[in-house]
Nucleic acid binder design. Structure first.
Lengths: 341, 341
DNA sequence: ATGAAAGCGCTAACAG
DNA sequence: CTGTTAGCGCTTTCAT
């Protein structure tokens, strides 16, 4: 590794081009109001010296960092077992880089990390934050709001039931669930069970709400709480089958859970979809397409969600004044019909 | 959002504590050579004002950023369909934050992005880079080496066959493959097929090598190239079955491919493991444990790989001089026995 | 052991 | 239009 040999500074470029630092700075930052011949000379010098602006110095004066933090708070390891965040990150990354912003990733694993993240955000290293707070009781969102950094949340934060002016992007979990259950009902199924996700997450709670809205009557025997994992969904499915041997459909809160349900159904000799129709949620391709039978499911465009979060934040950062639509953006879902229902 | 109200500076703390900026700086950075009573007073002032050092200002003088870039070059979307990178990121993140370093994530999607990444790295925003270069012909690694940033690679880079002094961390793909095939052979299987990964990736190539080493004879009819996805693995499995109807085992280059193979085997009426034994690679839990039957597979500790990469890089950064063991670190794999073989 | 002062590399008034 | 001049907030000699 060659010694970094202190990269050239503005000064050096200026000398080389025979102009002042200010002029070089102008050219480097867009070249407005500098006459063509000079611009050209400076460009040349920049090229020859391989000049790259020092971001630290720039930030020091502009107070801009062109960087945003992505905070993923996830106590459970589960999250990394599905491609959810990966997709979201990709969407975010695309949008951010399209606007020359860097993505600083902050993964948290527990209470200690919370303090660290709060400190980091308060330290003004980044211009804004994109936060995924999945749990109702998560203290992180509060800390972050306290840090005074413009923030957009991924998923409806549980603690902001309408009042606070948080900005968030979410899928239409409730609407999607309604669609799923309506499909099942339209198929003539009458005993439609629901395997929920962890109800301390708004996405799971909203899906349950959607289910209930369509079902009308509240039939607790048809609902069992689970945790979005296939393993626990198997347990849930068994419980459901024991309680209601005559159920003829199940709406699982996500595809992973649906795949667990499918397994139990097969093991118990129920044919899908003939005896029991199954609908999942997410349209996580590797799971939904590869399950047996392939899953009918509610698709949400995760990558797009990420992109929109980034876009919202960037817009907020641009117009320095807080403006327009503080609330939430809710993305539509679409039903994807495959073999399981 | 309250106006950021310009955070307190060192100056402010100094005033408050009745000392000089230099003293505050010393305390903030460890407090060596400052007498107890003063240290206490400064600490107090820092606390009261909620002072957080401005990283940009600090970097400007120290030329240190306490940040490292993680570059994930992935032309294919496939990668995000499995939790591989997520796990690796988590390992990296843990190690990095344990040493007060930030993680800047750079995702690339094509040629344009390469230039951008190279520029970013050359721009000296980060102290080092962790790079995942999975393809033989990837130009990125070269660009990065050119940028003169200390780098550790994830996975053996294809272009560095022994010569260049690259640092990398990899699983023992070849050894793991050998173990898998030996198990199958030990089970009395004699016609062991192999579904490979994309052979322009060293991991896939190494696994194939391991397979061949144990098989001894080169029997091309038993090997078909695939791409790590379940869908294409199905195609591969069918081809294999057509060419060698009497095969009695298959070693798939990863769990996803194994799951595809399993599906075709079932569809063709072959019992697993009675008729055909199957072994995968990765031990990607949601896939390996949930497949039917559960997969016997070669486990690699992805998270640990990430952690070690970070550790290596951090060590490199500490001792400013290039020192010791430049080569590669190869992590052992372990065979996990489940029902499929 | 502490303080004074000199920049780090850049942008942003302000002159000219 | 271009150059001059102040700093941005911090670390780091160098005195004291």
């Amino acid at each position: 590794m060659t010694e970094t040999a202190s990269r050239p500074t503005l000064e050096a470029v200026a000398a080389r081009a025979g102009v002042s630092r200010a002029t070089v700075s102008r050219v480097v930052n867009g070249g407005d109001g500098v006459r063509e011949p000079l611009v050209e000379r400076v460009r040349q010098a920049v090229e020859e010296l391989g000049y790259v602006p020092n971001q630290a110095a720039r930030s020091l004066v502009t107070k801009r960092h062109d960087a945003v933090a992505v905070v993923i708070a996830e106590p459970e390891t589960r999250v990394f077992a599905d491609p959810f965040f990966a997709l979201q990150l990709r969407g975010i990354s695309k949008e951010l880089t399209a606007h020359d912003n860097q993505l600083v990733l902050l993964l948290t694993e527990g209470r200690d990390d919370h303090a660290r993240v709060a400190r980091y955000l308060a330290g003004g290293h980044v211009d804004g934050a994109l936060v995924f707070s999945l749990h109702l009781d998560d203290p992180l969102p509060g800390l972050i709001q306290g840090a005074g950094v413009p923030t957009v949340f991924g998923g409806r934060p549980g603690w902001s039931d309408g009042t606070r002016d948080v900005v968030y992007v979410d899928s239409d979990n409730r609407g999607g669930a309604r669609e799923a259950v309506r499909l099942l009902a339209g198929l003539g199924r009458t005993r439609i069970a629901h395997i929920t996700g962890p109800l301390d997450q708004t996405s799971a709670a909203d899906r349950l709400d959607g289910y209930r809205e369509v079902m009308g009557v509240n039939e607790p025997r048809l609902v069992v709480e689970s945790d979005f994992t296939p393993g626990d969904a198997e347990r849930a499915m068994r419980e459901l089958l024991d309680r209601c041997p005559d159920l003829d459909a199940v709406f699982a809160a996500n595809d992973l859970a649906a795949s667990g349900a499918l397994r139990v159904l097969r093991e118990r000799g129920r044919r899908v979809p003939e005896d029991v129709a199954v609908v999942g949620f997410d349209d996580m391709l590797p799971v939904a397409e590869q399950s047996d039978p392939p899953l009918t499911t509610v698709r949400q465009d995760i990558e797009e969600m990420g992109r929109i979060m980034a876009r919202l934040l960037l817009r907020r950062l641009d117009r320095s004044v807080a403006d327009e639509a503080p609330g939430g953006v809710v993305l539509p879902t679409t039903l994807v019909r495959r073999a399981s229902a």
